[in-house]
Design a protein around this nucleic acid. Structure first.
Lengths: 349, 349
DNA sequence: CTGAAAGCGCTTACAG
DNA sequence: CTGAAAGCGCTTACAG
């Protein structure tokens, strides 16, 4: 009936399966079947129902559904995250959850020792599936436990996802390739590189892509042009000093993330070098530090919010399939990245 | 009964109001009354019920409650947030929401022009109340609209909350007082100060506290020791250059937030000054940049996560009261801050 | 392929 | 102060 209660009904309408059923001349049951799309309904019936849904602007009441079906709980295992990553991720995950009517529950797990406990806690809190962002998505132990427990889970932003598990990511290799080609196109041929933490899967791919692109362009990369970093600002400081202490300096430095690139700028300024005139600098990830420092950083943008949204959607699919007793194949989703050109690599002379 | 369904029941138990009612020898209705605490129940009955709840480890099924009562939707109006603030805030808000069974819905509102629309959209999406973090909590227009619509809302981390509205914050004045006294205790008497964006209420209080603490300690603050900043890294760079270009330099600089303090360090290094030996530096807020830069920043920590939790609790109280037709008095909650001492102000000589 | 019935766990009137 | 009944909107068996 959709009577005018002021009790938290969706302000959008308040049409129920019943209203739809009446309008379509079928039973509520059939409407439910159409909504959920899994059972068999004749095409003719389906059409009638969909039409009624449209006309009534019907939207399922997720609360009522949850009361019957059980709440869908999506767990997020976050550990030592960059605030930028976490906030972008949460915005996406939350958006998708409220559309689906799922609840998002968080569990922090700072040191690797507590991983097992954190996962157990998440499950004790009723998580039906788990989202695994970096760096946990690269932890063999965590992945193994998840697999053994058979709980639906999705790795986000790992560079080398397991075949056994759903994943959402960008192509780190292509990203670093694009960035290197950008520097080459600007006329740089002598480029320094700062590697990231070898424990993180993207580090290796980004480095490999840099080397490959340079080789393909016919440029040799001598050992003294490559420094090891750990993805931290601090490690970037050290690596930058090393690269810039050489008798001849590179004309550009590609740091494998923004924090380290920011450190390169700080060191360059300390040496009274102008960026980008004396040295071009670029990063990776497009975190807030990229636009905080001056000059702002050229970098590769990862669509974290979209990736989180996508990961939740995948997870919910998996959970639903599991509840319905159906089997589910892990899916891998590749999202588009973007090269963001800013002042730190402005045209070379 | 708590039969063994695998359908998303709380793994913790599955006891229902019915189970509790039976055990306590009362009706389900009475159990409900005890849980919600608003209606009148005799003390004896209440005790019996509470005992049964404990023994059965009963927890309300928020989904079922939501199906009846309508989902409680908490809206968050975020705009141009620092990622650090947003992620800490979301972690707290989400934690409290999942305990209460409320849904968190997000709405971004980047430019001030779109405020009105963003609030309308939030309400169209069914928000029963709104969380207002900075900088919107200081926007007269937004606050006015919220007040006119009569929608429950809570300002978070504003320095000068309206009496008409609930608010959760720290005492910015006390915080800056504490920081200034810390510098004084380290032996600094000639201290520079970088002010924040005058549009943000905390900026004024932090500056006032600095001046008051200096005066109280018997130290005059000449005009050339104060620079205007805008809370951005960039503005901090300019302000720091101004302060350090003086013929005699201060021995310490108090920047009214961490981004600007980080800029001070960068400028100092550029001038080949050691921090903290040549100049001590401190910030405010304890954002991630405080521990990203080197040396790490002494700063004032705001318990953002706790504040968000508290704000959601306040909002839910208000919404419940409103639904029950009761009046509600706006509440102001003051949370404790902490002085975090790090390397950037280590003991002076 | 489709429907009538019963129920998810809780709460809102309505009685007493 | 307390309870029996009905219902929130949806979905799960059970029939046909």
């Amino acid at each position: 009936m959709g009577s005018e209660t002021k009790q938290g009904d969706r302000p959008t309408g308040g049409a129920t399966v019943w209203d739809v059923a009446q309008k379509a001349g079928v039973s509520a049951m059939t409407v439910s079947r159409v909504i959920n799309g899994n059972a068999s309904v004749s095409d003719k019936t389906r059409e009638k129902v969909n039409k009624a849904i449209q006309e009534l602007n019907y939207q399922v009441n997720v609360a009522a559904r949850a009361a019957r079906i059980g709440t869908l709980r999506v767990g997020l295992l976050y550990s030592n995250p960059s605030a930028a990553f976490l906030s972008a991720f949460l915005v996406g995950a939350l958006g998708e959850c409220s559309q689906t009517g799922a609840h998002l529950i968080l569990e922090n797990c700072d040191n690797l020792r507590s991983q097992r406990k954190a996962i157990d806690r998440l499950i004790a809190d009723g998580a039906d599936g788990i989202l695994v962002p970096p760096p946990l998505c690269d932890s063999k132990a965590a992945l193994k436990q998840l697999a053994e427990m058979g709980i639906p889970s999705v790795a986000v932003a790992t560079a080398k996802p397991s075949q056994q598990m759903s994943a959402v990511r960008i192509d780190d290799y292509e990203g670093a390739l694009t960035m290197t080609k950008h520097l080459l196109a600007l006329g740089h041929t002598d480029i320094g590189f700062i590697k990231g933490d070898p424990e993180h899967t993207p580090a290796q791919l980004r480095y490999q892509a840099f080397i490959d692109a340079m080789r393909e362009a016919g440029h040799h990369v001598p050992a003294e042009r490559v420094a090891q970093g750990m993805f931290t600002y601090r490690s970037g400081l050290l690596a930058a000093r090393e690269l810039l202490a050489q008798p001849t300096r590179p004309t550009a430095i590609f740091a494998s993330n923004d924090d380290m690139a920011a450190a390169v700028i700080a060191v360059a300024h300390g040496l009274h070098m102008q960026v980008p005139d004396d040295i071009a600098v670029c990063g990776f990830d497009d975190t807030p530090v990229a636009t905080t420092v001056w000059p702002e950083l050229t970098t590769i943008h990862q669509p974290i919010t979209e990736m989180a949204r996508s990961a939740v959607a995948l997870l919910v699919e998996h959970i639903r399939a599991r509840r319905a007793g159906q089997s589910y194949m892990p899916q891998h989703r590749l999202m588009p990245f973007t090269l963001v050109e800013r002042e730190s690599t402005e045209a070379h002379e």
